[in-house]
Every structure is written in C-alpha cells, then in structure tokens.
C-alpha cells in the first residue's frame, strides 16, 4: 500500500507545483481535443441533421456506415490515418504526421461518427410530431429546419459531451499518429502509458487524476443533459 500512497503523494506534489512536463501533456490534450471536437461539430451537426431529417436513396446504407464507424477500433483508425499521413502516404507531403493537427485529424474521425449518429437520432426522435406541429403553426422550410435544430439542442449538447469524453480519453490514435513526442504531442493518455512503463508511477497517477476529474465533469454534464433531453417526451400532449 505504501507504493500507492507514495505515488499518490508525489502525484499531488507534481500537480500543486504545476510541474511543466505534466502540464505540457495536459495542454497538448486540451488543444488536440478542442480542435478535433470543433471540426467534429462543424461537420457532424449538419450531416447528422440531414441524415435524421431527410429521406433519400441510400440513407439506410449511410446510417449503417456511420454506426459501423462508431464501433471501429481506435487502433485501426490510427493505422489508417498513419498510412495517409506518413511520408509515403497520399497526404505525406503535408507533414502532419507526429503533429497536433495530425492527431486532431485522427481524433476527428473518432468524434465525427458520434456527433452524426447522435444528432441524427435526436432529430429522428423529435421529427414526426415536431414537424407536424411546426408546419401546422405556419413554419416555412427554413423556420422548420432552424426550429428542429433548436428543439434538439439538449440532445446535440449530449452528443458533443459524449464525443468530448471519447476524444479526451483516447490513446491508440494519439500514440500512433502523434508519436508521443515530449513537449509536443504527448497527451495525458500517452504520457500515462509511457511513464507507467518507465516505472514513473507518480507522474502516471498525477495525469490519471487530471483525466479522472475531466471524465467526472463530462459525466456530470452528460447526466444533466440526458435528464433534460429525456424530459422532452413530457412535451407530448395527452
């Protein structure tokens, strides 16, 4: 038990002393997560809305593809992105391998299907009754689109929180595409793996505490949003 308590005490010291190496990993994690989440939201919200709202040929196939992307192992995503960004890959000349933007591309592929799928589900679940309601109140096409997005706002925020949680805690893509370079692409998860492997248990615990706090906040947020989103059914008339 001494081993644990010593590691925990050193971890707290590192955090309270704002240890540069520890916080470099925290900073890299923050930057890459914000980038990946921003792109996932920018692309995923309109695509998810279109998938949930419109009926078009091949829609089920697209839905199947998105759901398949959700279950894709992260190391496979990392492998594909690595192959594209490596010097011999089609995007090799962009020089993105082992960089933060390169990692963000990989993590976007992780977050994007979550946003698309959850937004589509949110829009689908509100659509039938909501569309009838808005049309009967006199909404034109644009008003219908905007109001539907507005009504699905809790569910879309839930999608964003879920994607954030998945991206921030990912390791496979970060390791393969980022290369775990100290002061540059070393994130919380890759640093924990490395430091623990080196026997630097305290650093691993310190970073683990940060990650757990982030996970706790995200889960609290998700629970709050899920409650509000589920409450939507109360809106149904008798």
């Amino acid at each position: 038990m001494e081993y644990f308590s010593e590691g925990f005490a050193t971890a707290l010291t590192l955090l309270l002393a704002l240890d540069p190496e520890t916080f470099s990993a925290v900073w890299a994690t923050g930057v890459v997560t914000v980038l990946a989440l921003a792109v996932s939201l920018l692309l995923g919200l309109p695509l998810g809305f279109a998938l949930g709202h419109f009926r078009f040929p091949g829609r089920r196939g697209v839905r199947l593809f998105v759901d398949w992307m959700l279950s894709l192992p992260t190391v496979v995503i990392g492998l594909i992105v690595y192959a594209f960004l490596s010097s011999r890959g089609p995007l090799g000349e962009w020089g993105l391998l082992f960089t933060v933007p390169g990692m963000a591309i990989g993590l976007t592929l992780l977050g994007l299907p979550i946003i698309i799928s959850m937004t589509a589900t949110a829009v689908e679940s509100t659509d039938t009754r909501l569309t009838q309601t808005l049309l009967s109140l006199g909404a034109d096409r644009w008003q219908l689109l905007l109001a539907t997005l507005s009504e699905a706002r809790f569910a879309m925020a839930l999608a964003a929180a879920s994607a954030f949680g998945r991206i921030v805690s990912e390791i496979g893509i970060a390791m393969m595409v980022g290369g775990n370079i100290k002061w540059q692409t070393r994130t919380i998860t890759t640093a924990i793996a490395l430091e623990t492997g080196k026997g630097e248990f305290a650093t691993g615990i310190a970073l683990g505490i940060v990650l757990m706090l982030v996970a706790l906040v995200v889960n609290l947020l998700v629970n709050l949003l899920r409650g509000r989103s589920n409450g939507a059914s109360v809106g149904r008339l008798a």
Binding site: R129, L130, Q132, T133, S136, E151, F154, A232, G235
Partner: peptide, 8 residues
C-alpha cells in the same frame, strides 16, 4: 392534430 406537441 393528435400528433401535436409543445415546444421546449
């Protein structure tokens, strides 16, 4: 209609 709902 019967399918009418209130907005949030």
């Amino acid at each position: 209609g019967q399918d009418t709902c209130l907005l949030k």
